[in-house]
Write a protein that binds this DNA or RNA. Sequence first.
DNA 1: TCTGGGGTCCTAGGACCC
DNA 2: TCTGGGGTCCTAGGACCC
Length: 425
Amino acid sequence: MTSLFALVDCNNFYASCERVFQPSLNGQPVVVLSNNDGCVIARSNEAKALGIQMGAPYFEIRDLVEIGDIHAFSSNYTLYGDMSHRVMATLSRFTPNIEVYSIDESFLDLGNFYQKNLVEYCWEIKHTVHQWTGIPVSLGVAPTKALAKVANRLAKKSAKAKGVLVLTDPYHITEALKATSIEDVWGVGRQYAKLLRKHGVNSAYDFTLKSDSWVKKHMAVVGLRLVKELRGESCLELDEIAPPKKGICTSRGFGERLTDYGQIQEATANYAAKCAKKLRKQKSCAKVMTVFIQTNFFSGTDQQYSNSRTITLPVATNSDMELIHYASLVLKSIFKPGYRYKKTGVILTEIVPQHQIQYDLLDNINREKHVSIMETIDKLTSRYGRDIVKVASQGYDHSWQVKCERKSPCYTTRLSEIPTVYNAT
DNA sequence: TCTGGGGTCCTAGGACCC
DNA sequence: TCTGGGGTCCTAGGACCC
């Protein structure tokens, strides 16, 4: 049987989410900003047309925002996550086999759909998603995932395709590959693009003409898989079930530079609690923790310092109290006074299923109690909102928190309420 | 003044063992 | 003091993704 994949991609996803709830912004330039309102991470077509680049620092366009020529939003991941679920649920109606690849993209297995009128089916998918969720999507269909990516990109670019492109016959596939420059190929980043250009590879088509041995030598097995996919040989399967994460990280820049240890400690405690929550969500515990701290690399005037330390925990855990405790200890050991800090983060690795923990004979923590406390906290927060209950060292001042001055309401989910502080001792 | 955050996979090289 | 080779495990770093 021949394989066939559709790549469904939400157009300008974050910007589209904002527009669903403010339809007056349709046809207007809209951008969404990164944490701290630092730079542009999503743009509507109108914003792209104004020449605003991905990653452009916000201060470069602030004037245009202030006079109302561009509408800018702080990122609102609660809203985008919920909208993403709605889109994916809608897509699941169209095939039993779907891989949610990222917050705004899915691969659909259409292997059994060759006999269908594929173009018509794609249009039906596109219309239904738009009607049910308000989000515009584009579809690219082809015999491999890498080719479906190529098709999807052209579907968006081409005025004729209008968001749907089915690539099944060899002639059209070749034409599509010729029309795709090498840096636009999925899996070819800046370094590989440079290397390939140096060797005369300017398009995806040129790439398919390179020998397997050349590709393997310069781009290892990942590159080899990619070039085969572009030639139409399917090497990447549909991964329907997301495997549990092997590393979990929470880090953020502060709203302003911090020098005070207490504030940095509070931020770090909150990041540790966020990591713990992500662990519990996938029913895992972590055995190794890294904490890092850094000043602002971009500053030409500030004294620079950065450091990190990794520790192995006595017993793998997903408890807020325990992870906060260790994160605070590690932070203390790497914090040096006298610097203006920009960012800290907590990274957890050696992640194991929570029912497979190696206990330690010398362990004197009442783990059953921790588990039941965390279950209670999770229930309360899912019912009454994030931060309704927390560990005392997480504080409630939050002067370190990221700036998000232009955030839209969480239209589709419950709002947080006033926090109650839980004492962990 | 202002420049994101969270992941994955692969490889080379060193340490260590027999 | 010199003489090997092969295997495994771990880590750091590089490449990529959205």
